[in-house]
Amino acid sequence: MSITYLEAIQAAQDRALGEDDSVYIYGQDVGSFGGAFKATKNLAAKYPGRVIDAPISEDAMVGSAVGATAEGMRPVLEMQFADFSTIAINQICNQAATQFWRTGIPCPITVRLPSGGTEGGGPFHSQSMEAIYAQYPGLIVLTPATVEDAYSMLLEAIAIDDPVVFCEHKYLYYHLKADQLPDQNLPVGKARIARAGKHATVVTYSAMVHEALRAADELAEEGWDIEIVDLRSVKPIDTDTILASVARTGRLLCVSEAFPWGGVNAEVISRVTSEGFHLLDAPPKRLNAKDTPIPFHPDLWKTHRPASQSIAASLRDLLRY
């Protein structure tokens, strides 16, 4: 059998609903329609009353989920697109994220964000929001890059007692396939070496892992052995795994599909330079999307975001230093 990234997300929710009566799903069109991307396909029929259509009210969706946790529920929210979660930022960052610290009462909500760019998505259906949420204390921010991670990390997100922002990448929904779902996987908080190498490290996450892997293939033909660290979780960040990789290679390129100012790349470079400056043989580099809104036309979009060619070019610069 073969299972896609999207099907893994559906399967994880199916399993969570089946195993735990306190789990329910709430989001726009998630009910009998099965969600805009079909991530909740068949679940409303299988779990009557527990997969609920929400009005177009992201703020109220998250606010009500926070309230429901106080009654022992574990809500899973689907934002139709990550971009629309800005409407709910107040409830996510000020209500959910502050609750445990203010009161000592945990707030186990999972907010699923269909993230990242696809052809024709344009400025408001393509965004990568992980850095915004990672900035706020009290949130866990996950960015799975593989089918296995999409499944196991979503299950873990639902089980975690804290609010989790689950950034699933739309570009991977249909393209990425695995033979089967995992029984065991790395826990949340641990990064993964997606490809071992010795000449340079690429730290990346989500869809960019696959672009980086293609770039590494390209460089392998030129004799370079590139190591790729898939962060999996951007908050917390597994600094130890990053530093260990940089210790092996001496060179660092960070790649993210998000906008360039601040963000995950800046955070990784900051940590490596302050904790592992002596490990570096070259100034660390970063590659982000451009500092403009995300363009609609595929030709513009492909240039706006990092891709295997631009990653390979950055790596050549880094290796030449």
Partner: peptide, 12 residues
């Protein structure tokens, strides 16, 4: 913002 939190408790 607390209105929907109260609602959520009622949903729970």
């Amino acid at each position: 913002s607390h209105i929907s939190v109260v609602s959520g408790r009622l949903i729970g």
